[in-house]
Nucleic acid binder design. Structure first.
Length: 834
RNA sequence: GCCCGGGUGGUGGAAUGGUAGACACGGAGGACUCAAAAUCCUUUGCUCGCGAGGGCGUGCGGGUUCGAAUCCCGCCCCGGGUACCA
């Protein structure tokens, strides 16, 4: 079946593109600039099918845009810090650097073998001293600007990874994104990035991004802005002690029949400490009429203990179907709207980490409160009139306000505003905006990451390392042990530092940064990869940023893409990137996954079908073509036995074109009409393929080109003229050049005296020729197709009708011999209504 | 539960309100060959009919329209995200 030496041709062209530097670009390039980037790959070794798909899309875009006359920045690098290398070190004793470099070499070789082209001079590796230095410089600037801070907080600890995790790395069911272990809560002092400062801008500017809608929706939900009111509920019988609550429904305050605090709320600790049974404390707060039954101290303490023993999975995952649990605190609070006292409960359906950790409970209009009220037999009052036929429990719909004194009769919206006005006037509350988004925890108790460039001085406190001392590199002489303690913390001298302020002894921070920090700015470095003075310059970023086309997996919808957006905005405010650069990625494409039996094809599942197998048999071009042809780029593909047959089919098509492109064509006689038909087909295909390239419909580009090749074979069988046939072949080669680059380059160079195909301009369709083509007019009777007739492209309704009425097929279905009505979309369609 | 996608031949899929099933894979038949492979050609939604031709058909039920896979309403199923966020 093979008609050319695939291995030889593919390797030769890979070498040639590299030597010619076709895809090396300079800042002073005069062509229009664009930037195409695939997401920073983690180097896990040789490429898998997911990589092949991803990098084929990337490479295709680079080559297509280059042929369209653009100077395309196409860089590549490796997200080379991370846990697997360190875990391997614990297991095998091989240093993470050595391990990682070997994996990078494998992945790099795979990408080259795939035929992916890059400006390799710009290659980056997160663990290189150069990149570590710039990560640390950026951290230092963040620290100085108050965007990086250290705080004690309840954090997610993964026992499997032996480190803390960001909220974004913990799944809804409380398991670790990477290892799947159940994440534990620990109170630790950790470093955070103040991403919440940008919550509003991160949310609002999503609208303007040319990104897939599902990704935009996920980011909006993750940031989770909600608008409502915050106010204080004072403890009945005491002065100066209260509980702040947050609600999005201040209009329902008249329906508050109890209040709830989270088990971790400070007021709960005060109950357990016996504060409310302490005569001095009560006297201090003017509690002459205060009543408290000390029996509650034990029952509250017991409840808090019970909750503590539950991990997140127990507490959260069965959220909606588990009966509500809680305990009466023994305290009452006063509803400021009604003046009534209502009981204060503690329950774990209220989370300390959201809002104020306390709520007013309105069982009439909130299902969770309703469920709790039922368990504890608490009163339920409706403040919104439900429809007549409402038979649910809590009513959350719209309606007229009732049982709400001065809010009665108002709409919910108006009542909200008036309730906030009431709180503001009484100076016990105000309108408030809350976010689901938390600050980004970046500390990791691991070795193979970028060290946090901070020292702790007994005299001067927490200090950023002096810039001239950067990079701070992790020492090589460490022991990798599965103890859960970072090798850096155990190292004899790494901790020893000099305070940059006073010059005295200081203790060095031993935690490293989350690897998502590295991938939050690497794309900026590519634009100015040779800069020795700064991570990047404003001028270079003005030339190349933002990334015009970003390509990667949907699994990064929140984590990487949100962090990178935050970095861009923060760096912009710090003056390190252009002020007008607020978003890093103009257009995003998320490719589909490769599945096998319904689950993701991956090394850990042991269901990999290695690309090497195909590189060594049918070649990279055929494998690329298969991935492009199999379906829409955004769709997942379930790998079955049929895949091999389809890959064979791709190889067959390539050979079919190769044969016709390289064998001499000597027609016996000339059929000019056959030539004309082929010419029309060629120009139609150029038009369609170009349109489809622009809309990322690569599977239909392949289909259109296959049709063209079929037409070429037909034209040859019909003795079409040589020029028409040769033009059609050249056209097909150009249209396929971004998809199957090697064989196309080879065919072009054979046919055109060693010319470089990928430096050729993109073909354009002959519109004049296309305008002269006859169209097929569909004749419908009452919407059903009854005949098809060839007509001129500019036919008018009158002639179309007379042609139609001359057709027997039409007249059979038209009892009166003429229509009662005519709908014409000429020249494509004529619909006659009987 | 809520929020996104999606449901079309034996299979992957095509069709931006206008010929449903392009293009492939697989199947069937044929040519070439001593034979096989490779290659080339024909055919391939279901159904009635010898045929010309007709009927049905895009998860299900309604609707809008001259015309619906496509738009609207109500369901069913599959995939993903999210999960007591007040």
């Amino acid at each position: 079946m093979v008609s050319y030496d695939i291995q030889e041709v593919e390797l030769r062209w890979q070498k040639r593109w590299q030597e010619l530097g076709v895809y090396n670009v300079e800042q002073d390039d005069l062509r229009p600039k664009s930037y195409v980037l695939c997401m920073y790959p983690y180097p896990s070794g040789a490429a898998h099918q997911g990589h092949v798909k991803n990098y084929t899309f990337g490479d295709l875009n680079v080559r297509y845009r280059t042929m369209r006359g653009e100077a395309v920045l196409s860089p590549i690098g490796f997200d080379s810090f991370g846990l697997p290398a360190e875990n391997a070190a614990i297991k095998t004793g091989i240093h993470p650097r050595e391990f990682t470099e070997a994996r990078i070499d494998e992945l790099r070789a795979s990408l080259r073998r795939l035929g992916s082209v890059y400006d390799w001079r710009r290659e980056s590796k997160s663990h290189s001293p150069n990149m570590v230095k710039w990560s640390q410089v950026i951290f230092k600037r963040f620290f100085e600007a108050g965007l990086a801070y250290k705080a004690e907080a309840p954090v997610n600890w993964c026992p499997g990874c032996q480190t803390v995790l960001a909220n974004e790395q913990v799944h809804a069911d409380g398991t670790c994104d990477r290892s799947g272990d159940i994440v534990e809560k620990k109170n630790l002092s950790q470093w955070f990035f103040r991403i919440t400062k940008y919550a509003d801008e991160l949310l609002d500017s999503i609208d303007d991004l040319d990104w897939p809608e599902p990704v935009k929706v996920m980011q909006r939900n993750w940031i989770g802005r909600s608008v409502g009111a915050k106010f204080t509920l004072s403890i009945s019988g005491l002065n100066g002690i209260g509980v702040d609550v947050y609600t999005t429904r201040p209009d329902t305050a008249f329906g508050m029949t109890y209040a709830v605090v989270a088990p971790e709320h400070p007021i709960v600790a005060m109950v357990i400490d016996g504060k409310f049974a302490d005569a001095d404390f009560i006297a201090q707060h003017g509690g002459a009429n205060f009543e408290f039954d000390p029996a509650h101290i034990n029952s509250v303490a017991a409840f808090v203990e019970e909750v503590k023993t539950l991990n997140d999975v127990d507490r959260v995952s069965t959220a909606t179907d588990r009966p509500k649990r809680g305990v009466f605190t023994g305290l009452s609070v006063t509803n400021p709207f009604t003046g009534q006292e209502v009981p204060l409960y503690s329950a774990d359906y209220v989370l300390m980490t959201y809002g104020t950790g306390a709520i007013m409970a309105v069982p009439g209009e909130d299902q969770r409160d309703y469920d709790f009220a039922k368990v504890f037999s608490l009163p339920i009052v409706r403040t919104v009139k439900p429809p007549e036929d409402f038979d649910g429990e809590a009513y959350t719909g719209t309606g007229e306000k009732i049982n709400s004194d001065f809010l009665n009769g108002l709409s919910i919206e108006d009542a909200k505003a008036k309730a906030i006005e009431f709180l503001t006037n009484k100076e016990i509350g105000e309108s408030s905006v809350q976010y689901r988004l938390r600050d980004w925890l970046i500390s990791r108790q691991r070795y193979w990451g970028c060290p946090i460039p901070i020292v702790y001085c007994d005299n001067c406190g927490t200090q950023a390392e002096a810039e001239e001392n950067l990079p701070i590199l992790a020492p090589d002489d460490v022991e990798f042990l599965p103890t859960g303690e970072s090798p850096l913390a155990r190292h004899a001298t790494f901790k020893d530092a000099i305070c940059p302020k006073c010059g005295g002894y200081a203790r060095r921070e031993t935690d490293t940064m989350d690897t998502f920090v590295d991938s939050s700015w690497y794309f900026l470095r590519f634009a100015d990869a040779f800069n020795d003075d700064a991570p990047f310059s404003i001028e270079a970023l003005r030339e190349w940023m933002p990334v015009d086309q970003y390509i990667g997996g949907i699994e990064h919808a929140i984590l990487h893409l949100l962090y990178a957006r935050f970095f861009t905005k923060a760096l912009s405010d710090l003056g390190m990137v252009p002020t007008e650069l607020r978003e890093p990625f103009s257009r995003l494409f998320t490719q589909g996954m490769i599945l096998m039996n319904g689950s993701k094809m991956s090394k850990s599942k042991g269901n990999l079908i290695a690309p090497e197998k195909y590189f060594n048999s049918v070649g990279a071009d055929a494998l690329r073509l298969f991935h492009l042809f199999v379906g829409p780029p955004g769709d997942s593909f379930n790998w079955t036995d049929q895949a091999d047959e389809m890959i064979e089919g791709s190889a067959r098509f390539i050979n079919r074109l190769y044969r016709v492109a390289t064998e001499p064509y000597e027609p016996k006689g000339i059929d000019t009409e056959a030539g004309r038909v082929l010419r029309i087909e060629l120009n139609k295909t150029i038009k369609k393929a170009t349109f489809d390239y622009e809309r990322w419909s690569y599977n239909t580009v392949v289909a259109a080109t296959m049709s063209l090749v079929n037409a070429i074979y037909k034209a040859i069988a019909a003795n079409a003229d040589v020029e028409s046939v040769q033009d059609a072949i050249d056209g097909a080669i150009k249209l396929l050049a971004p998809m199957t680059p090697h064989v196309c380059a080879e065919m072009w160079s054979i046919r055109h005296d060693d010319e470089i195909l990928h430096r050729q301009p993109w073909p354009s369709a002959d519109e004049e020729l296309l305008a002269s083509v006859k169209e097929t007019m569909i004749i419908q009777i009452g919407g059903k197709v009854r005949d098809r007739i060839e007509v001129d492209g500019d036919i008018d309704e009158e002639s179309a009708l007379s042609i139609a009425l001359a057709s027997d097929k039409v007249l059979v279905h038209l009892p009166n011999g003429k229509p009662s009505r005519v709908v014409a979309k000429l020249p494509k369609l004529l619909n006659l209504i009987p």
